[in-house]
Simulated scan of single mutants.
Amino acid sequence: MNGSAALYRTRIRHVRTEPVHNAFGYRSYSWFIDLDALPRLPWWLRPFAGFRAEDHLEPGGGRTLRGRVDAVLAAHGIDLQGGRVTALMNARVLGYVFNPLSLFWCHDSTGDLRCVLAEVHNTYGGRHCYLVRTDRSGCAVTDKRFYVSPFNEVDGVYAMRLAEPAEGLDIRVVLHRDGRAPFAATMRGRRRPATTANVVCALLAAPLAPLTVAARIRVQGIRLWARGVPIAPRPTTDQKETAQ
């Protein structure tokens, strides 16, 4: 297997503070990969860890993940000149994938980080890519532009901590609106090399992880609806595959 790939066994937590308090957490795992050196898995593991370009970003970028990243960057006047792009994401498991948040760290040919692509997927099949420029601590702020939850309007500002993971992973996204923070999500974990044994252990610890994550989000939505939380109208124009 390619030695540059890694796994993060993660703890993910969502906290909503209004109009009702609701918090839940779960364990999962994410892949950290180099887009120019995708993992090469044993044949019997391939159905449980697939990476496809069509699961991310703009179709016009081509048939590779790297090509799609470069196409998004080119639209913003950014040329990495062959620099490295790393990504944190969920893989396809038995043909199914769901990435609530995929992250791409885009470095230029000198190794400097130029920007981060933060791609959000909702459970309706929509996706939206935010291009952000982080500070030295990995923090950035961007306007919310995508309908993620039926219980949150498409307004407010995201404060993100998107530091590229090393031995530890610590991602944080907080929605701010009118001086309040009605929603926050965190993802933390420790790095493990993507050896065959570690991949198998992750699969056993969180079987069918993408399907389980999508199911958990839907269950929480049903609980919020049952508690009388009003549903925000879904925009009539589906916001797919755009970058801001």
Rank of each mutant, 00 (worst) to 15 (best):
A91Q: 08
H121G: 11
V157M: 12
N122L: 08
N152W: 07
T110V: 03
W105L: 01
G125F: 03
L103T: 10
D135G: 06
V93T: 10
R92E: 10
G95C: 03
L101P: 10
L94F: 09
C106D: 01
Y124W: 14
V141M: 09
L113Q: 11
A163W: 03
F104G: 07
N99T: 12
T142K: 00
C139S: 12
D155R: 14
L103I: 14
L113V: 08
L94Q: 07
F146K: 05
P165L: 02
D143V: 00
R92N: 05
V154A: 04
A87R: 07
C115L: 04
V132I: 05
F98K: 01
A87N: 07
D108F: 03
R136W: 00
A140C: 05
G111H: 00
A166N: 07
V141L: 10
L113P: 04
A163D: 11
V116G: 12
K144T: 08
A140G: 08
N90A: 14
L131C: 07
N90H: 15
V97H: 04
F146W: 01
D108I: 01
A166I: 00
A163H: 10
F146G: 03
L131F: 00
Y158H: 11
H128M: 02
P150D: 06
G138R: 01
V148G: 11
L88Y: 06
R127P: 07
P100D: 07
C106T: 02
R127V: 03
T134S: 02
L162Q: 07
D143F: 00
V93W: 05
M160P: 05
Y96F: 15
D108G: 11
D155E: 15
F151A: 12
A87D: 10
A87W: 05
T142F: 02
S137Q: 14
Y96G: 11
W105I: 01
G125N: 03
H107V: 02
A118I: 11
C106Q: 01
G126N: 13
L103D: 06
L88G: 10
E164Q: 08
R145L: 13
C115N: 09
L117W: 12
G126E: 15
N152E: 15
E119L: 09
N90F: 13
K144P: 07
V157E: 15
E167F: 03
L113E: 13
V97F: 04
S149P: 12
C129K: 00
V154Y: 02
R136C: 03
Y124E: 14
Y124N: 10
S137Y: 00
S149N: 06
D108K: 01
E164K: 01
